[in-house]
Amino acid sequence: MSDPAVQDVPGDPWDKRVASALSFLRRRLSGQYEVDEFGFDPELTDHVFYPVLRRLYHDWFRTEVFGLENLPDDGAGLVVGNHSGTVAMDALMLSIAIHDGHPKARHLRLLGADLVFRVPVLSELTRKSGGTVACNPDAERLLSGGELVGVFPEGFKGVGKHYRDRYKLQRFGRGGFVSAALRTGTPIVPVAIVGAEEIYPILGDLKPVARLLKLPYFPVTPTFPWLGPLGLVPLPSKWLIEFCPPIPTADLVDQADDPMVIFNLADQVRETIQHTLHRLLAKRPDPFGR
């Protein structure tokens, strides 16, 4: 910093930006990039997906994050959150919260329902952004590889619930996520996400249409399907995300097949998230406030 004028000269920022964009384009068009065995494309994620999501994260949802220090510095971690909001926007915002808030800018590897992978385009976007099918082999493979894995055990029961049930955690399924954590000795980090419930409030569910389209539900919100494509614009709710202290599992590795241990641990995670949700909601009296 002794002579900033000299340092500035070669740094014509506009030229650099053009050169970098062109070189990015060339690398993409000639296939000179790496994808991992799950299909994760870090370059595309960092340069295309995340910048778009980041705008939503900051400007639209005005997200605030707490408890980032509860995420593991490096090595495996299983982030377990509440699911809501008709589409899995909460998972995407969680990825940004972690990537931008973590000192090592870690990527969250999400586990998605197999329905996601049946849908063309969506399946590939999910894989390229680091997601994979929610099944124990994949979860354990990612965790043994030292990745930070994100999972929403409520699944469709969470995203597709009625607006009157907002912030009420649904059943946690069979606790497959707990057994994956136990088998790999990975700490579980519960996370509470407030704000996603209000983006597309579900007031009704057109079951016949859902059955026709083979979807788990067909949402009716104040704007969808009435306003057509405009109804796809999420309402600008205020988001709060809080990571809770990690639950260590290293001493339970030999009990990964004990259903009692699994259910208890799943319950503990669920209670933690529910309490944190209540606390965050008290902090945010107006869902659409600053």
């Binding site: 799950f38 299909g39 197999d114 049946r118 994979t132 099918v133």
Partner: peptide, 12 residues
Amino acid sequence: SFRDPAVFTEET
């Protein structure tokens, strides 16, 4: 299948 794990081991 769409429910397949991403990576197959010999036991899959």
